[in-house]
Amino acid sequence: MSIIGTNIRNTRNKKNLSLKELAKKSGVTEQYLADIESGKKIPNQKLIESISKALGISVDLLEPSYFSQYFEEDDEKNEPKAPKHKITDKKPIEEDNAISSALSKAVRKIPVIDKMTSVKDFPNKNDIVDYKYEPVFQNKATNVPVGEFVYYIAQDNAMANSRILKGDLALVFITDSIRNGDIILYTERNKCYIRRIAFLEKEDILLYADNYEYQPILSSQRNINIMGKVVRVEFKI
């Protein structure tokens, strides 16, 4: 299911607009809009702007920032009160269990992969070579679906000018909400690549490196599987 498609459908229903009406206002066919809402097609940035204008809302309401849920400050009234210290006669094993439980909420386990043999149930357990532990932001991991992030070990120097070198760990946010110029992780013919993406006319896309030694690839959305966007990189020193 597409995040953008779901937001478009929900907003359209709230405004009592039919598929046909919104499609006409947005300059696309009714079937194409239906495919976007169902997640079969990913709209480019220009089309997202057209649809948001037709709905009379901000683009951010269709394509919200994916980091907002982690860094958004909580209201003071929602802040948990510090627990009072008290003497307890609980057994050490119960205390250890409590500490383990607290630590499990303070960090999250993110899989590390270096290939992709299947796009089903991504990341596939057979492709996982390691795990990294990341701190939880603002104690909000309990509301975040498991498997939202994955680390991918870069296999080439195609994105060297973006400071992603072979062997570096690229943190990938698993999403289908992709914008022009995003660095994405995608598969084509059972091989993984990290490249920038540019949406062209219809379903055509350009996948390009920022290292001149690697040639750009003209392809179609139908020929690739976009797994997510690179949001951070960890490199060796």
Results as ranks from 00 to 15, higher is better:
L169H: 05
V119L: 03
K105S: 13
V144D: 08
A154L: 12
L171N: 00
N157H: 09
I128G: 05
G181I: 05
I153R: 14
P123M: 03
N143D: 09
E94Q: 12
N161A: 12
D114I: 01
Q69Y: 09
D182S: 10
N126Q: 12
N126I: 03
P92R: 08
D127H: 07
K91L: 11
F173V: 00
N126L: 13
E148F: 06
I128H: 12
D89I: 12
Q138I: 04
E94D: 01
S68E: 15
N161D: 15
K91V: 04
E72I: 13
Q138R: 12
N124I: 04
I128Q: 05
Y152F: 13
V129M: 09
Y70F: 15
P111L: 09
P64S: 11
E79C: 07
I113T: 06
D96R: 02
M159S: 05
E188S: 11
Y70T: 07
A98N: 06
N124V: 04
Q138E: 10
I174C: 14
Y186D: 02
Y66H: 14
A158E: 02
A82T: 15
P135T: 14
A154Q: 08
T88S: 15
F149N: 06
I174K: 08
E73A: 13
S100T: 12
K120H: 09
Y66L: 14
S118E: 07
I87F: 13
T142V: 02
S100A: 11
M116S: 10
E73Q: 14
I174V: 14
Q69G: 09
A170E: 00
I178M: 04
V144M: 07
T142R: 02
A170S: 08
R179I: 02
E95S: 03
E94N: 01
A141E: 01
T117P: 02
V150S: 08
T117L: 04
A160M: 08
C192E: 01
F149R: 13
A98D: 15
S100N: 07
P92T: 07
P111G: 15
N161P: 08
Y151F: 15
T175V: 01
E79L: 12
E188P: 02
A160Q: 11
P145D: 08
F173S: 03
A160V: 14
E79V: 05
E94Y: 05
K105N: 09
